[in-house]
């Protein structure tokens, strides 16, 4: 069974480019309807299917995602 993972998104640094959405193999991410202080719609986690594969974090140009995975 795939391991569970979790992510923490630094929403104030996120620019809502959606590159992580395209990279996530489990459709865990979506853009929030809200905006951050800079006016960007930021990425949020919408379900619990994250496996901690780090794909979203390594394509993120602004390094906003921190990834955790169960041991």
């Amino acid at each position: 069974m795939a391991k569970h993972g979790d992510i923490v998104i630094d929403i104030e640094r996120c620019k809502g480019c959606e590159v992580c959405l395209a990279a996530c193999p489990h459709s865990v991410l979506a853009l929030s309807p809200e905006v951050n202080k800079k006016g960007y719609h930021y990425t949020v986690k919408v379900n619990e299917d994250c496996t901690g594969c780090t794909n979203c974090a390594i394509v993120c140009p602004d390094a906003v995602i921190t990834v955790y995975r169960e041991k």
Partner: peptide
């Protein structure tokens, strides 16, 4: 799961905390 022992990826310490001035989605950041 958000505990230090489960950490698999975080921003490198060589990158400063300054927010990048690049446009959203620009490959320069990566």
């Amino acid at each position: 799961l958000i505990k230090p022992e489960n950490l698999v990826y975080k921003k490198s310490g060589i990158m400063t905390d300054r927010v990048l001035h690049y446009c959203p989605g620009c490959g320069h950041g990566t």
